[in-house]
Write a protein that binds this DNA or RNA. Structure first.
Length: 576
RNA sequence: CGGCUCGUAGCUCAGCUGGUAGAGCACGUGACUCUUAAUCAUGGGGUCGUGGGUUCGAUCCCCACCGAGCCGACCA
């Protein structure tokens, strides 16, 4: 009996699975399948003169089939690439009916199935390197049809592009879009490259809590959860800064962590609720020193990934070659607005903002206004990597006051392609100053700023024991990956970006149907016809419903026993 | 949160000043031993996102909702 929940193609594949079992072929064998070559390796190294790869064993997914009677061509895809297979009836089938070729290969295998093949490599008349198959093994039967993407002369036809499906079913995206797999490989290389850089300098990679009784280290709204045994509220970390600095207090002179952080805020092309950041803290260093490290590290990343410091992003080339441009925030504003705001008081700043068309509101302090002007007028213009130094103190409660400039802190960001690439400062290690800064944040919090930091007594206690002068750094890995892989959206550098859940239509329990005297076998039929809840049958014409049911039964070859007209009538009266 | 756009077959898309739908690929059947977006013949496949409204009649017009994308707001 057909399963009407399935579409035709899914049904056919399930039938094939049964047929295979009848032929004694396990569609999901347990045995290992030992490969002795990769597709990429074959394509790169095969040479007809050398007569290499004459006994290869490879495994992968069938991506296309061209069947011509007793000979066929198949494209097989493994993790490294795609290669053509040549399959001949006489090579793989010995019995009279040639079952293995005529039935198993031609009828019961599909695009999407995973198989292993043994054979020898040769070049076809068309000049394509191909594996001549002597033996194949089904390794996994695929029950859902893949999107079919075709290609000729580098031109892609029917590309699988629907973003919703690509993100929700990333596995499908990865199967049919090899460039997507590359992006994620690059992302991993990027992280490896940074880790290598940091390890080489002797910094210690550490792990700190994700579940925190107090969240801190950034201005953001947290996710809240609850621990049963402790009966206590815990927060998912928004940053790991405060824990890493405790480790500097403890005596390590360089610690870093690649951490998943969580911020309960908006989602868009640049924001996902969970994201990855690397934070680094180095004792006895300052922000000027850290600037050099950032340049060096990011330049290395670009070189490791691309072999050059120049990276194509959209329609521009970004060059990470050292040294990068450096501006103080005031200089940057002067550069892009021709106005020197370094000595302005709050009233004149508001006036300037108004003149520049930068929206400000009365709750903003001096620092916030300056930051706003910078964000509006400068940041979008900074395409090539540029350091911006010396931020207003109000925005930076964990940064040390500037050694010589009043009202500023020793902080820098690197801006690239109009976006922040990193954030760093000379860490505040004066516990009394730090307490005052936290208290300022508490006031903001009381005024309703949901992102204001909370006061962390234990962190202050740690500082009171003494933290060496320390340089700290945070780099958003997702944002950097976007740039380094030329992707326009954060969702393209996260395997599984956050999505609203897929909603399934609400259906009544089978018991609700059977209570009316409806036989179980008819429930899927009724639901398929759109009667997801019994209440939807109400006030229906019983004769019409009866006819529809019998018709459905016949059309879909359900071979169910039709209910009588009276029975159907009874169902409907029972609802009423 | 606001503006715009989109949601039709397994996939990519067309369609209609409103008369319950078409193509290509995929799939089924048949032909074909070096093909390559294989080809040829033939066939099946759709509650046109969901729910209301207008209408004799809605996939199309209107409203609401759900989901997605882009832009903006907020936010780093």
């Amino acid at each position: 009996m057909p399963n009407i929940e399935l579409n035709e193609q899914e049904q056919i594949r399930r039938n094939s699975r049964e047929e295979l079992k009848k032929l004694g072929i396990n569609p999901y064998p347990a045995d290992e399948y030992r490969e002795n070559a990769s597709i990429q390796g074959i394509l790169a190294e095969f040479s007809p003169d050398r007569k290499n790869f004459q006994d290869v064993s490879i495994a992968g997914r069938i991506m296309s089939r061209r069947i011509m009677g007793s000979a066929s061509f198949v494209e097989l895809q493994d993790a490294t690439g795609r290669i053509q297979l040549y399959v001949r009836r006489e090579d793989i089938s010995t019995d009279e009916n040639a079952t293995l070729y005529n039935t198993v290969f031609k009828k019961l295998l599909d695009i999407g199935d995973i198989i292993g093949v043994k054979g020898f490599v040769f070049t076809t008349q068309m000049g394509e390197v191909t594996v001549h198959v002597k033996e194949f093994t089904l390794l996994s039967k695929s029950l859902k049809p893949l999107p079919i993407v075709k290609e000729k002369d580098g031109k892609v036809y029917d590309a699988f592009t629907d973003p919703e499906m690509r993100y929700r079913q990333r596995y499908v995206d990865l199967v049919v879009n090899p460039q997507v797999r590359d992006v994620f490989v690059k992302r991993t290389h990027l992280v490896n490259s940074m880790r290598e850089f940091l390890n080489q300098r002797g910094y210690l990679e550490v792990e700190t809590p994700v579940l925190q009784p107090l969240y801190g280290g950034a201005a953001a709204r947290p996710f809240k959860t609850h621990h049963n045994t402790l009966d206590q509220t815990l927060y998912l970390r928004i940053a790991n800064e405060l824990y890493l600095k405790r480790l500097i207090v403890g005596g390590y002179d360089g610690v870093y962590e690649f951490s998943k952080d969580f911020r309960n805020e908006g989602m868009d092309r640049f924001h996902n609720p969970e994201f990855t950041q690397v934070e680094l803290y180095v004792a006895y260093r300052d922000y000027a020193w850290m600037m050099n490290l950032v340049e060096e590290m990011i330049e290395k990343v670009a070189l490791d990934l691309h072999g050059t410091t120049q990276v194509k992003v959209g329609d521009r080339i970004i060059d990470f070659k050292r040294p990068w441009k450096r501006y103080t925030m005031y200089e940057a504003i002067r550069e892009y607005t021709r106005i020197d705001i370094s000595n302005m008081d709050e009233a004149r700043l508001i006036e300037t903002a108004n003149k520049l068309g930068v929206p400000v509101d009365p709750t903003m302090g001096k620092g916030k206004i300056i930051d706003q002007i910078f964000g509006e007028k400068c940041e979008p213009n900074l395409v090539q990597p540029t350091f911006i130094m010396d931020y207003p103190i109000e925005m930076s409660p964990l940064a040390k006051k500037h050694r010589s400039k009043e009202g500023l802190v020793e902080r820098f960001e690197a801006i690239c392609n109009g976006k922040e690439l990193c954030n760093a400062f000379s860490e505040l290690n004066d516990p009394i100053d730090q307490r005052e800064r936290f208290e300022q944040q508490l006031i903001l919090g009381k005024r309703g700023d949901e992102e204001a930091m909370v006061l962390d007594e234990d962190f202050l206690r740690a500082l009171e024991y003494g933290m060496p002068p320390t340089a700290g750094l945070g780099i958003g890995i997702d944002r950097l990956s976007m740039i380094m892989t030329n992707q326009g959206s954060i969702q393209d550098v996260l395997f599984f970006p956050q999505m609203r859940p897929e909603k399934k239509a609400v259906t009544d329990e089978p018991a609700t149907y059977t209570a009316l005297g409806i036989q179980e076998a008819w429930i899927p039929v009724l639901q398929k016809m759109g009667f997801l809840q019994v209440s939807m049958l109400k006030e229906l014409n019983p004769n019409k419903l009866h006819q529809d049911l019998c018709g459905f039964n016949k059309k879909n070859k359900m071979e169910l026993k039709n209910p009588s007209q009276e029975e159907v009538k009874e169902w409907i009266t029972k609802i009423g």
